[in-house]
Nucleic acid binder design. Structure first.
Lengths: 148, 148
DNA sequence: TCATATTGTTTTGATCTCAAACAATTGGTG
DNA sequence: CACCAATTGTTTGAGATCAAAACAATATGA
C-alpha cells in the first residue's frame, strides 16, 4: 500500500512518541477548548473573562493581588486593565492605601459578564459533551492533581 | 476573623466560578506541566521538541505537512525551522517535487533528541507522580475525548 | 525622621502567531 | 504543447502576550 517509495513525505504523519506525553495531550485539549470558547464567547478571551470573574467574586481587589492570582507580572496587568477599563467593564478606585487601585465591575461589566456566563455555560456543555457528569468530575480531579 | 472591614482587598482571593470551568483547569495543569518541562529540559521548548519528534518519526516530511500536524500556519514554520536549522539539529533537502523541502534530523539533532527524551522521561514521571498508571491512562483517555 | 518596601506605571524588548503577497514549480485541461 | 489554477516556501507587516528594569508616590517600621 505504499503510495510511492518509502522516504517521500507521507500526507498522514506518524505521531511518534508524542501522544504518550501528558503535556502534549493537555495542549491539544486546551487548544480545542479555546477554539470553541473563541467561537462561543466572541469579543473577549478566556483570560479576560477569568479576570472579570475574579473581580466579580472579589470586588475591590488590588491590581497586584489579581496579578498574583492569574500568575502574571504586575506590569503585565496594567495594559490588560487599561483595555478592560477602556471597554467600560471595570473601573479603578484609589484604595485606602493610596498606592493601590481597587478594581470594580461597572454596570456594563456586570451586564457583559452575565451574558458571557450564559455563553460559557453552553460552551462548557459542548466541551464536555462526550463526558458523563462523573467523568467530567473525574477529569477535573485528575487535572487538579497535575497542577498540585 | 475579618482582618479589616468587608470590602478592602483580601490577600487570598475567592476563586468565584472559575474552578468549575474545564478550560481553566486545563490551562492551570498545562502551565504547571510546561513549567516543569522548562526546568527539566532546558534549552528547548515543548513545541520544538514535538517537531523534532515528528521529524524523527517521519523523516523527509514536508514543511507544510509538519505545519498542518502542529496546527500552525505555513509561514509560521519558516522561522521555527530556520532556528532548528541554525542550531544544527535539522536540515532541509529539496524534495522530488522541487517546490517542497524535506526535513531530516542531523546527527546533532538525533543526539539532542536522545538526550531530551531521557530528560522528558524523568519530567513525565514527575508530572504523573500523584497518578497511578491506571489514573494516568484514564486522564489521557478523557483528554482525548475533549480534543475530539 | 529616615531607611526600606510596596504599588502602579512606563519603557523596552522578546516571543509567538497569522495574513497577504510573491516567485518557483507542478498538474491538469484543452 | 500551451496555458491556467493550485501548491510550496518565503518575505513582510502586523498584533497579541508577556517579563524585566527603572521610576515616582506612598506606606511602614525602627
Amino acid at each position: 500500500m505504499s503510495r510511492r517509495a518509502e522516504q517521500p513525505p507521507r500526507e498522514r504523519l506518524r505521531p511518534g512518541a508524542l501522544p504518550d506525553l501528558i503535556g502534549y495531550r493537555l495542549r491539544l485539549a486546551q487548544q480545542a477548548v479555546f477554539r470553541d470558547f473563541a467561537s462561543s464567547v466572541p469579543g473577549i478571551s478566556p483570560g479576560r473573562v477569568g479576570m472579570l470573574l475574579l473581580i466579580e467574586a472579589n470586588p475591590g481587589v488590588t491590581q497586584s493581588t489579581l496579578a498574583q492570582a492569574v500568575q502574571r507580572d504586575r506590569s503585565t496587568m496594567v495594559g490588560v486593565l487599561d483595555q478592560l477599563e477602556a471597554k467600560g467593564w471595570i473601573e479603578r478606585r484609589r484604595g485606602a492605601d493610596r498606592r493601590t487601585n481597587g478594581l470594580w465591575l461597572t454596570r456594563a461589566g456586570r451586564l457583559l459578564l452575565a451574558r458571557a456566563k450564559r455563553a460559557i455555560a453552553i460552551h462548557e456543555q459542548r466541551v464536555a459533551a462526550r463526558l458523563s457528569a462523573a467523568e467530567r468530575a473525574r477529569l477535573l480531579e485528575l487535572l487538579g492533581r497535575i497542577s498540585d
